[in-house]
Simulated scan of single mutants.
Amino acid sequence: MFRLVALLSGFIFGVGMMVSGMVNPAKVIGFLDVFGQWDPSLAFVMGGALLVFVPGYFLAVRRQKKPVLADQFCLPKTQTLDKKLIGGALLFGTGWGLAGLCPGPAITAIGAGTLPIGLFVISMLVGMRVISYLQQTRIPSPVKT
Rank of each mutant, 00 (worst) to 15 (best):
D71W: 03
L90S: 11
Q136L: 08
A106F: 00
K83Q: 14
G88S: 14
L101N: 01
C102H: 04
S132M: 10
G87Y: 04
V54Y: 09
V15Y: 05
L32E: 02
A112M: 10
G48E: 00
L32C: 04
T94V: 15
L125K: 01
P40C: 08
V121R: 11
K77G: 15
R3M: 13
F53N: 05
G95E: 03
F92C: 11
Y133N: 09
Q72E: 13
S141W: 05
S132E: 10
S41Q: 01
F73H: 06
F2R: 15
T94N: 03
V61H: 09
S41K: 00
Q72F: 07
V126L: 08
V61Q: 10
G48C: 07
G111E: 03
P67A: 11
V5I: 13
Q37R: 08
L42N: 04
Q64I: 06
V5F: 11
V15F: 10
P55H: 05
L50S: 05
C102Q: 07
I12Q: 05
L125S: 08
L115R: 13
R129T: 13
K84L: 14
W38E: 05
Q135R: 15
P25L: 01
L90Y: 08
A60M: 07
L69H: 13
C74M: 12
I131N: 11
G21E: 03
L98N: 01
L90A: 14
A49G: 12
Q136C: 00
G97W: 00
V54N: 07
V23E: 00
L115D: 04
L32P: 03
G95F: 01
L75M: 13
L50P: 02
M46T: 06
G10A: 09
S9T: 12
L59M: 11
G14T: 03
P105K: 02
